[in-house]
């Protein structure tokens, strides 16, 4: 269970204006697999980052009662100058894991071969995604935050991700941002909808998707 209490996020923009991403949001997210829906720029990733704690709210707070991953995205959260190995070792240390076990797992999972020792900046986006996914699977969390990850990589890698992920989901939940309704339908059973600074919870995924499509239509019509 994750509680959002009076959550407000306002970005102070370069031009001197305030971008109000969300204002006074009160919401309790159940321990279920949740899809986050919203149009481009509506604040899906911002919400994900605030849930994880990488970003502080302007006011209000997030109460976390379970262990939550970092936002796992295809861009990865890697330091480009460091090698895959060094990045993995750093994260293992930060999370207090057995460094060698984590390195071994990720090395095996990501199939990067010699590239594992090269700086991340030399990786293709697919290789970065493989490393990101492998690393996040090496550490056990009760909730995984996924930002558009599962739609990247070749077909074989996607299959492998799905298998690993389905195993994880017997013990863990996910909160997922994706533009692919197919992906969301596969993993999620309820939804959070963000629009114009407001956030709703939908108990049923299909209701959420229907509402989201209404939003898109009204935006296209306007």
């Amino acid at each position: 269970m994750i509680e959002l209490e009076n959550l407000t996020k306002i970005y102070r923009m370069r031009g001197g204006w305030d971008n109000i991403v969300m204002q006074n949001v009160n919401l309790t997210l159940p321990a279920r697999n949740i899809a986050i829906l919203g149009r481009n720029g509506s604040g899906k990733s911002t919400l994900l980052r605030m849930i994880s704690g990488t970003e502080d709210p302007t006011s209000g707070r997030v109460r976390r009662h379970r262990s939550i991953s970092w936002p796992i995205g295809f861009r990865g959260s890697f330091h480009r100058e460091l090698s895959g190995l060094e990045n993995v070792r750093f994260v293992a240390r930060v999370y207090g894991q057995n460094t060698e076990d984590v390195i071994e797992y990720v090395k095996d999972f990501s199939e990067l071969g010699k590239f594992f020792l090269e700086p991340v900046k030399t990786y293709s986006s697919g290789m970065g995604a493989r490393l990101a996914f492998g690393l996040s699977m090496a550490i056990n969390f009760q909730v995984y935050l996924i930002d558009e990850l599962l739609s990247v990589g070749d077909a074989r890698f996607q299959e492998k991700c799905k298998d690993t992920f389905h195993d994880k989901m017997s013990a863990s939940k996910i909160i997922m941002v994706s533009h692919s309704m197919q992906n969301l339908r596969e993993y999620c059973d309820c939804a959070v909808l963000i629009n114009a600074g407001k956030v709703w919870f939908c108990d049923d995924l299909e209701t959420g998707i229907a509402k989201y499509e209404d939003l898109n239509k009204s935006a296209a019509g306007a």
Partner: peptide, 11 residues
């Protein structure tokens, strides 16, 4: 210099 590492909530 460490910007990418702040994507881990603990950092």
């Amino acid at each position: 210099a460490n910007q990418p590492l702040f994507n881990y909530p603990l950092v």
